[in-house]
Write a protein that binds this DNA or RNA. Structure first.
Lengths: 322, 322
DNA sequence: TTGAAAGCGGTACCAG
DNA sequence: CTGGTACCGCTTTCAA
């Protein structure tokens, strides 16, 4: 633990006062060329590096936000992150990114350390609100895709009922009647499953052909295989997300089966597979931008966005797979 | 610009001294229950949030590094970023991510603001070394995939000659003779192009069937179409990266053409296309981990890694497309 | 249990 | 052109 080298060390090494060192390092005008050079040399010699904390204390004009993501390798979250980064950059903010691996423990330890590092937190959490409240030390929090109650929190709401309804409408219009779904593999059904059921019911169709899928390409392929074994007459499926849909698409093609597939998310990735994936798309740019904007308002104490301004609508994006 | 609420404000609001406030907020023992509650209430009331700078100044035990990436939406960089994040988390570091959109101007403005925010910088730069030196205020810098000269800098070297050689060997062994390449679209040929030429020459084959491609799926498709128009007898191609390869694969399949394709990068993405992409793979985890480790040594003043320890070898990863 | 005082490492504003 | 001094907001002794 080598002792930190401070401006004082440089000052005495160069035989000047700290203010002079400060001037030299910050390219202030009022300083003699020789002196400046001497200081610079001494600084380099000692390996001096100004403390960002001390700097920040004196001129606290930089704000940074923490962006908490369950999995950076999932393209959906990458897109959200990219959008948030861009929105933050426009404000001159810094973004500290944390990947929690979708684990509550990691969320906790992230929060533990986040509090003293950022001015606001934005992102995805599984933690209970009480826990969030406790570990977040009073800084503003913007939750994505999840409800909140405490006033210090805010949420970006994801509204997918209409989009999923359009998807099912589209399948039905194309003549499909036996439509299945590949949901996530968790214990309780997802929002998307609920939306799917509502849409199916509206058509008098029974939404009973459902399998759970691990959230990966292989997971999607497996789940489809299972579903088709149990329900061989299915002609179309809707999936929890695009990753799963791509796996399903692959499994279908390999088994030589003609199957209409509609995913959820609207990833760029969906355009590189063949056929290109039809999907219920979310505007990831909007999600990221909204989250940052809301954080800005919360921090500034401005009137925060609310209600309709804070929801992102999913819309059906027709490509080739259905 | 609402005036910052300090610990003093809370103190006077609660009718105690700042130390007492500090105790209450940090869960120190020596404090009366009532007093503590009163302080906490006052703090909440005022919306008080401790300054992370002041905190850091007193107890500077947190380090953060800046990760500079040209494009977070490119899966290759995402993978590197994820690896770096993980390595940093293992050390208890924070990672501030910057996306420079592959633009020198953005790199500059990023650096401008980075200096007072992080303890080291890691990533991809187009900037000249002099510029890096000037704007980086003496903090350690680890460059990825690029040489350096100044001692304050360090580089992770990407060594692909052997991997590309294996790829070409593989194609030749499969009977291919007319092998083309889709390089990037920049003015000067890439390293990969050089490696390709060397490998071709070693087989006495002429590496003259080359087209430039914009780095996107569509770019790859376009470039392949152009190449095949000019060189209809090509039976196999090697590409600058996986994204381009995927586009080429799609174009080939759509034109009903049987073409062997080998990409570069080793993206996960290559497994979701059909046929799965054969590629010259880079270990992105290693790149990220190495960069962070080297930054750690540079910061600690330890003996930095050097030579062979700092290179990442590309290796041929056989899948289905060749 | 609480408060006063002394820094942490810089920068800004003076005076010299 | 240079140095002294006063903070920035917080935590940590050390008294009271």
């Amino acid at each position: 633990m080598s002792q930190r080298i401070t401006i004082n060390d440089v000052a005495s090494a160069a035989g000047v006062s700290r203010q002079t060192v400060s001037r030299a390092l910050n390219d202030k005008g009022e300083i003699d060329g020789d002196t400046k050079q001497r200081v610079l040399d001494a600084a380099k010699e000692l390996g001096y590096r100004p403390s960002r904390f001390a700097r920040g204390l004196v001129r606290p004009d930089t704000t940074s936000i923490g962006l908490v993501i369950p999995d950076l390798l999932n393209p959906f979250f990458t897109e959200v992150a990219a959008a948030a980064l861009e929105a933050a950059r426009a404000k001159g903010w810094h973004v500290v990114v944390y990947d929690t691996a979708d684990s509550v423990d990691e969320e906790l330890s992230t929060l533990q350390v986040i509090g003293s590092q950022v001015d606001a937190v934005v992102g995805y959490f599984n933690l209970s609100e009480t826990q969030l409240d406790q570990h977040t030390h009073g800084i503003p929090v913007v939750l994505i895709g999840r409800e909140h109650h405490a006033t210090r929190f805010s949420s970006i709401r994801i509204e997918g009922a209409q989009g999923v309804r359009s998807a099912v409408d589209h399948l039905v219009a194309a003549g499909h009647r036996r439509i299945g779904m590949l949901d996530h593999a968790h214990a309780e059904p997802s929002d998307k499953h609920q939306w799917f059921c509502d849409a199916m019911n509206a058509h008098g169709l029974s939404p009973d052909k459902v399998a759970g899928a691990v959230q990966s390409v292989d997971g999607g392929a497996d789940a489809l295989t299972r579903l088709l074994k149990a329900q061989p007459d299915v002609t179309a499926i809707f999936t929890f997300n695009d990753i799963i849909a791509i796996g399903a698409l692959r499994a279908a093609r390999r088994s030589g089966r003609d199957l209409a597939v509609i995913g959820f998310d609207g990833l760029q990735l969906g355009t590189v597979v063949d056929p290109a994936l039809t999907t219920v798309a979310l505007d990831t740019r909007k999600i990221g931008a909204l989250a940052v904007e809301q954080a800005a308002r919360l921090m500034a104490g401005d009137e925060p966005l609310s209600g309709e301004d804070l929801v992102v609508q999913a819309v059906l994006l027709l490509r080739e797979s259905a």
